[in-house]
Design a binder for these strands. Structure first.
Length: 129
DNA sequence: AAAATGACTGGGA
DNA sequence: GTCCCAGCCATTT
């Protein structure tokens, strides 16, 4: 087990039940923005039961054909499907990006005077359901 | 060192 | 909408 694998595991472990994340997002949070495919390789070998690998899905919400139990495991967590895909609009995981991620326009500022009108909260996660 | 592999992706047809 | 493909990345031959 190498560093890359451990890193991916850690990110995947932080995806809350009932939420899903595309391979590409996992790669991003893990610090390798274009390594979506490599994340897939790690998942392929993942046998560790403490890693919710079933919450990692394709960018369009569809699932990996070979991972047969994935759908059932997701449904068990309340995730609903529209045809062959999960509804990302409702279940997409909104992670807190690590500070070291290279953000071009890091200029942080309040968006629109009203935007968060009364809400001062840090965007932690997408709204539950 | 070079080539093949795969639970990936975005873009074009 | 769906299909296909070149590009991408870590691993394994």
């Amino acid at each position: 087990m190498d560093a890359w694998t451990r890193r991916v595991y850690e990110v995947v472990r932080s995806i809350p039940p009932g939420r899903v994340a595309p391979y590409g997002l996992v790669a991003l949070v893990a610090g390798r923005p274009r390594a979506a495919r490599a994340v897939g390789n790690v998942m392929l070998e993942c046998d560790d039961p403490t890693v919710p690998c079933h919450r990692v899905v394709h960018a369009d919400g569809s699932l990996a054909p070979s991972f047969r139990s994935q759908r059932a495991r997701l449904r068990r967590e309340g995730v609903r499907f529209t045809g062959a895909r999960v509804d990302l609009r409702e279940r997409l995981w909104a992670p807190r990006l690590p500070a070291d991620v290279d953000r071009p326009r890091a200029t942080r500022r309040r968006l629109g005077g009203d935007g968060g009108s009364s809400r001062r909260t840090t965007l932690k996660d997408s709204p539950a359901l």
